[in-house]
Amino acid sequence: MTKLICIVCPKGCHLEIDESFNVTGNFCKRGEVYAKNEVTNPTRTVTSTVKLNSKILKMLPVRTDKPIAKSKMFDVMEELKKVEVNAPVNSGDIIISNILGTNINIIATRTIKE
């Protein structure tokens, strides 16, 4: 039996998962998926910023479009340091595709018009 706190949403349900992957304590389905992943292959969404050339802002907020293996978080940060983006950018635009060969993309999370 492993005790976990679901980190998917701010509700933070207290979960328990047993050896045969039965999950209890989850308020919604996502908690069950989280618990199973967390004990087999933990993943995290990485959020950060990249350099931006724009009249309005200096930094563009970005994130992985899906959670990525926890062990790859710092490697993602290194890749982000190499990028510079020019405005205009739309929220959801792909900034780096297939980062580190994971099939996961880095997407912009803010629209910058100019």
Binding site: C9, T45, T47, P61, R63
Partner: peptide, 22 residues
């Protein structure tokens, strides 16, 4: 607040602060 976890129960998607604001 560029980290994620916003609006999961409203939009059924895990958004960052700027995405939610937008």
């Amino acid at each position: 607040c560029i980290h994620n976890g916003f609006g999961l129960h409203l939009f059924n998607e895990e958004l960052s602060g700027p995405e939610y604001a937008e």
